[in-house]
Amino acid sequence: MPFLAVSASAQDVGTPYDPDPLSAVHAWALYGGTVIGGFLLAFLLTAVTSRLSRPSRYRPGQPWEHDEIWIGAKPEDIEAKRSRAAVPGAGGASGTW
């Protein structure tokens, strides 16, 4: 330890005024900017990844460019091959929005 103390000259260690203290603007930019920049980075990363991983919300009027989705049995899953003809006497109702 004494060896290290001796080897470091006074010029290397400096004084409280050398190097010059940070200006207020510089200090705020350094410390405040780091914190705000970190939050911004985290926010951007969250926004980008959530947008990529989740289907965007349906908005009426927008084109629908997805593959068809079946919930329940698909016609292809039914063992008995049925003709894809309209069911005679079928009932039901329609709606538009």
Binding site: W64, H66, D67, E68, I69, W70, I71, G72, A73, K74, P75, I78, R82, S83, R84, A85, A86, V87, A90, G92, S94
Partner: peptide, 21 residues
């Protein structure tokens, strides 16, 4: 059964055909 996707041609008829299958 629920199907979400585009229907071709006559919409009512297309839905009835799907049920027929």
């Amino acid at each position: 059964a629920v199907r979400v996707g585009a229907l071709d041609g006559d919409l009512k008829l297309a839905a009835e055909r799907l049920l027929g299958g």
